[in-house]
Design a protein around this nucleic acid. Structure first.
Length: 357
DNA sequence: CGCGTTTGACCTGCGC
DNA sequence: GCGCAGGTCAAACGCG
């Protein structure tokens, strides 16, 4: 296998980040607008994997909201691999006179060349996009050891103890064998496309309508907050998500989805409506990128925008987006229970929903 | 009892 | 090859 030099890799990553920056400028200064949801399938195309890109770090700031626009291409020779997730998110952009991000999008049409598309689309050959596969080890056999000591004779006891210890040792070896057994990797692991977004939330694990099982937690370097790993509990569905809290702003939760649900949401069994709806669990788009389902989507918004009166739902969105927003259905009950949705979504929506129930 | 979480150990990729 | 950090596994545990 030809190995790309680290310099070339860095350059490639930097270029990717440069391309992405043109399309992904979601962190706005002095605003709680964190990562806007895409409004159209084509918008989605440009969103995913932005957070898997590595870029030189932004200048130190007190928070991501205080950041000044930065040109990541002007960064130093940063060790890309050491960049944390939040580092990658800490990219902002001056939207100039645009009234909203969506206006900005309209004023700055995104043209992605086939080459750029290719570099943005996950591919096994891409150095940026790692690959993976879900590996299920065989079920662990019951290894309970019953050590009995019915004899009164010390010698026999000792013998049994030795035997028992041998047994335990064997079991340990079995364990180690199981653990050390080389995993079959016929190919380079394929990593599912990712979709990441930032939310403002008190709770780490947001209820997005799916059932998740936590399978791991890791301390994140340079962050006091751990990163949690969740997997969709539906059989055969390998969707994963990572949840971590921003070290810069603990009120911000970064959620990264990986993969596509192969089933409808348990909360919204009828699935969804509008352009996002299809039976695959994600939107019907031609790209390989992951698209959040409407309820996830809505929740993102609910958490995305702070309940601050100055940032009302309608004032931050273009009418077209609002229109789409209204087409969404069945927000997770958690949102309502927490009173978050009311802060964000027009009351008619909730009322209408209550009527339908 | 079933399901979900916790947590330490292990695996893997990457940079040096 | 080594060390580090991210990601995953699976036994133990807790809870309803």
């Amino acid at each position: 296998m030809m190995r790309i030099s680290s310099v070339e890799k860095r350059e490639e990553k930097r270029e990717l980040a440069r391309i992405t920056l043109k399309t992904e400028n979601f962190v706005m200064a002095n605003s709680t607008f964190i990562t806007p949801p895409p409004t159209t399938p084509s918008d989605f195309v440009h969103m995913p994997n932005v957070f898997s890109l590595s870029a030189p770090p932004p200048p130190p700031t007190s928070s991501i909201f205080d950041m000044m626009p930065c040109d990541i291409s002007a960064g130093g020779d940063q060790k890309a691999g050491s960049l944390g997730f939040m580092d990658l998110l800490e990219i902002n952009q001056d939207f100039g006179s645009s009234a909203s991000l969506f206006d900005w999008f309209n004023q700055n049409p995104i043209v992605v060349s086939p080459q750029q598309q290719q570099s943005l689309v996950p591919s096994p050959a891409s150095p940026v996009l790692e690959t993976s596969e879900v590996l299920n080890n065989p079920a662990t056999p019951n290894s309970s050891a019953s050590i009995s000591s019915s004899s009164n004779e010390v010698g026999e006891d000792a013998l049994q103890q030795v035997k028992a210890e041998d047994q335990e040792e064997e079991q340990d070896q079995d364990k180690n064998k199981k653990r050390l057994k080389p995993k079959k990797r016929s190919q380079k692991r394929l990593r599912e496309p990712r979709f990441a977004f930032m939310t403002k939330s008190e709770v780490d694990h947001l209820d997005d309508g799916y059932r998740w099982r936590k399978y791991g937690q890791k301390a994140v370097k340079n962050s006091p907050y751990p990163r949690s790993y969740y997997r969709c509990t539906s059989a055969g569905c390998g969707v994963k998500k990572r949840v971590e809290r921003s070290s810069d702003d603990p009120s911000i939760v970064v959620t990264t989805y990986e993969g596509q649900h192969i089933h409808p949401s348990p909360v919204t069994p009828r699935g969804s409506i509008g352009f996002l709806a299809d039976s695959s669990g994600f939107g019907a788009v031609t790209s390989s990128f992951v698209i959040p389902q409407p309820h996830e989507y809505q929740q993102q918004h609910a958490y995305l925008y702070s309940p601050s009166p100055s940032l009302s739902f309608t004032s931050r969105f273009s009418p077209s987006f609002l229109h789409q927003e209204k087409r969404l259905e069945s927000p997770p009950s958690l949102l309502r229970d927490h009173g978050l949705l009311q802060d964000i979504v027009p009351s008619q929506m909730i009322r209408k929903e209550a009527e339908e129930e």
